[in-house]
C-alpha cells in the first residue's frame, strides 16, 4: 500500500502510472463499502448508555473560571491533553527549524527598506495584517465567554504573519534565540504555571478558583504566541520562501 509512493508532481496527470490494477481497486472499494455499511449499522443498532458529559461539564462550569464550556474543557478540565498537544506542535517546529548555523544575526526580524512589495501587497500589509492580528487578539479574549480561544487566535495571527513574511520586505530570522523562545514559550508557561499552582493547591494544573480565569487567560496568551509562531514556521518551511535568508546568509 505504501510501497509505491510517487513524489513527482506531474505524475498525477497520468492516471495509469503506479496505480493499482482496476480489479484490486474495485475489490478494495467493495470491501470498504461493506465495512462502512456495517459500521453505520452498528451505529444505528447500538443503544447509547449515557448522556455524555454535557451535564457534568455544565454543573462544574462555574468553578472553571470561564463561561465557554469548550474553553473550560480545553484549559481546565482536560488541560493535560492541551499541554501534550502543544508539545506535539513543538516537535514539528523543531524538525522545521533551519539547521545551518551560519547566520550570526541576533535580531528576530530584518527589514529591507529597498524592497518594493508592490501596490496590492503593500495595501494588504497595511490593512489586512493588522486587522487579522486584532481579530486574533479579540478571539483570544472572547474565548472565555463565546466561541474562540487560543487555537483560533493562533491561526489568525499566523495568517497575518504569513502575509507579512512571504513578501520580500520583511524577513524572520528563524535561528535567533527570540524565535526559538517564541516557539517554546507556550509549553514552558503551561508547565511552569501547572507547577506553580500545584504549590498552592497540591495538584498539578489545579488552579485556585479565585484566580482561575486570570491563569487561564495567561496560559492561553502564551499558547497563542507559540501556536501562531509554529503555524507560521510550518508555512514558511513547507513553502521554502525564506531559505535565502536562513540558509545562505
Amino acid at each position: 500500500m505504501f510501497k509505491e509512493i510517487i513524489f513527482k508532481e506531474d505524475a498525477i496527470n497520468k492516471p495509469e502510472k503506479g496505480r493499482l490494477p482496476t480489479s484490486i481497486a474495485v475489490l478494495c472499494g467493495v470491501t470498504i463499502l461493506a465495512l462502512c455499511t456495517l459500521l453505520v449499522g452498528a451505529l444505528i443498532s447500538t443503544q447509547r448508555h449515557s448522556e455524555g458529559l454535557q451535564q457534568v461539564v455544565s454543573s462544574m462550569l462555574n468553578k472553571s473560571g470561564v463561561e465557554n464550556p469548550v474553553t473550560a474543557v480545553l484549559l481546565n478540565f482536560r488541560s493535560y491533553d492541551t499541554l501534550l498537544e502543544i508539545a506535539v506542535l513543538l516537535i514539528v517546529a523543531i524538525v522545521m527549524l533551519p539547521q545551518a548555523t551560519v547566520s550570526k544575526s541576533l535580531s528576530l526580524i530584518r527589514v529591507q527598506q529597498s524592497a518594493d512589495p508592490g501596490l496590492i501587497m503593500s495595501s494588504l500589509l497595511r490593512f489586512l495584517a493588522p486587522t487579522l492580528i486584532i481579530m486574533g487578539g479579540y478571539m483570544l479574549w472572547t474565548g472565555a465567554y463565546s466561541p474562540g480561544g487560543a487555537f483560533q487566535a493562533g491561526a489568525l495571527i499566523a495568517g497575518a504573519g504569513i502575509l507579512i513574511f512571504t513578501n520580500v520586505q520583511y524577513q524572520v530570522n528563524m535561528q535567533s534565540f527570540a524565535f526559538r523562545a517564541l516557539l517554546s514559550i507556550g509549553l514552558c508557561i503551561f508547565i511552569l504555571s501547572g507547577f506553580a499552582v500545584a504549590l498552592q493547591t497540591g495538584q498539578f494544573l489545579e488552579y485556585p478558583q479565585k484566580y482561575a480565569s486570570a491563569i487561564i487567560l495567561f496560559i492561553e496568551t502564551a499558547a497563542t504566541v507559540s501556536i501562531a509562531t509554529t503555524l507560521l514556521l510550518l508555512y514558511l518551511a513547507v513553502a521554502g520562501t525564506q531559505e535565502e535568508f536562513n540558509h545562505d546568509a
Binding site: N68, V70, T71, M139, P147, G148, G149, F151, Q152, A155, L156, A158, G159, L231, L234, Y235
Partner: peptide, 13 residues
C-alpha cells in the same frame, strides 16, 4: 468553536 477552527486551520491553513 470547532467550525471556526476548521475554517481557519483545517481548511485554510
Amino acid at each position: 468553536d470547532v467550525a471556526i477552527a476548521e475554517a481557519a486551520i483545517g481548511a485554510g491553513l
